[in-house]
Amino acid sequence: MTTPLTLTPGRAPDGTAVLAAAGEIDMSNSQDFAAAITAALDGAAGPLVVDLSAVEYLDSAGLSILFRHAERLELVAPPVLEPVLTLSGIADLTTVRPVPSSADGT
């Protein structure tokens, strides 16, 4: 059984490409996550916003995919992922924005 993960590509109101992920990202589904980012990047000229607002778990399996495309990615992350993103160093390579307060479920 693979860990549940929903990946939804889309556009922001300003037209920026967005990949919204919901669920948990670990070794069992990191391939799906990688494929979705590659596909979203292919379909966009500019940066890709990966919206992790609804991700409850992210470990090195997911981080390594983010690292691979760091220069073209912008991340939207909930507080729960903040330590992982900071400690791993990805926050230094990409822009990490907090989840807008309206979207913050807390």
Binding site: M1, T2, T3, P4, E24, D26, M27, S28, Y57
Partner: peptide
């Protein structure tokens, strides 16, 4: 097996 990870978590 990696599929077990979610359950364990």
């Amino acid at each position: 097996e990696s599929s077990q990870l979610g359950r364990v978590r």
